[in-house]
Amino acid sequence: MTQTIYDFSVTDIQGNQVAMEQFRNKVLLIVNTASQCGFTPQYKALEALYRQYREQGLVILGFPCNQFGAQEQAAEQEIQSFCELNFGVTFPLFAKIEVNGQQAHPLYQYLKSRAKGVLGTEKIKWNFTKFLVDGQGKVVARFAPTTKPESLAPKIAALLKR
């Protein structure tokens, strides 16, 4: 049986299990994040996208990760406070995960297998790599950390109209 994104469950930043099934028929932007990264200001742009499109069905999912330059050493509660206080983040945040290696979260193993990076590699290169998933759960694109969230607005809008 073919796996879909809806077959996974994740742990939210409060420690609750969340079935990805609850995001069926939503457009998802899934991002591995970090609080001490040069790309951390993208939280503000991600939140702006979320506020612009959430009523139409966009959900941004933030997954803190400490695998790149140890830039997310804080505990979950600190991460949530940091994001809310500094960037006004209201989109869902999740427990810290690994995105590469043997301990990579199964959701990220799936995302990387469906949307490869530069030169066909699955490995995530850095914080704020973004995966865009359509309302049917299909991973439609992967974007580099350097891709500004606001530049994704036309792609998100197009998927929301489907």
Rank of each mutant, 00 (worst) to 15 (best):
A74Q: 14
A95N: 11
R114P: 03
V10C: 13
S81Q: 13
F82A: 11
Y50S: 13
M20Q: 00
Q3R: 15
Y110P: 00
G15K: 12
Q17H: 08
Q36C: 00
L93Y: 06
V99L: 03
Q103K: 12
G38F: 06
Q52C: 15
C37W: 03
I13R: 07
L58A: 05
A75V: 05
D12G: 10
F8V: 12
E84A: 15
F8L: 09
Q17D: 11
A104I: 04
A19N: 08
K44A: 15
P41Q: 01
S35R: 04
T11D: 01
N16S: 14
H105C: 03
C83Y: 12
C37I: 05
R24P: 02
Q67V: 09
A104V: 08
A70Y: 10
V10F: 06
F23D: 02
V99F: 13
T90A: 11
K26T: 00
D12E: 12
I13E: 07
A75T: 04
I13Q: 03
N100F: 07
I13F: 07
M20H: 00
G88A: 14
P64D: 10
Y50A: 09
T40K: 03
C37P: 04
V31T: 06
G62W: 06
E55H: 14
S9H: 06
N32Y: 07
G62R: 00
P41C: 02
A34E: 07
L46V: 00
Q77G: 01
R114D: 00
H105E: 02
V99C: 02
Y110C: 01
A74T: 06
A74F: 07
Q67L: 10
S35C: 06
Q42Y: 12
L58F: 09
G69Q: 14
H105W: 04
P92Y: 05
A95R: 13
Q67D: 13
P92A: 15
R114W: 08
T4Y: 08
Q71S: 05
L111H: 01
F39H: 02
N66S: 08
R114L: 12
Q3F: 11
F8W: 10
V10W: 04
Y6N: 07
T2C: 02
P106E: 15
T33L: 03
A19P: 00
F23C: 01
H105T: 07
E98C: 11
D7M: 05
F87C: 10
Q3G: 12
Y6H: 11
G101H: 11
Q14R: 12
S113A: 13
A45C: 12
E98T: 05
T11E: 09
E84C: 04
K26N: 10
G62C: 13
Y50D: 13
P92Q: 12
S113F: 06
I97Y: 06
Q56L: 13
Q67W: 13
Y53G: 04
V18Y: 02
F87K: 08
V18K: 03
N16K: 13
E21Q: 09
T4K: 09
S113P: 01
L28N: 00
R24G: 01
Q77A: 14
Q77D: 04
A45P: 09
V59Y: 09
A75C: 06
F39E: 02
P106K: 14
I60L: 14
Q102S: 10
F23E: 05
G69A: 15
I60N: 02
Y108E: 09
K96T: 01
T90F: 07
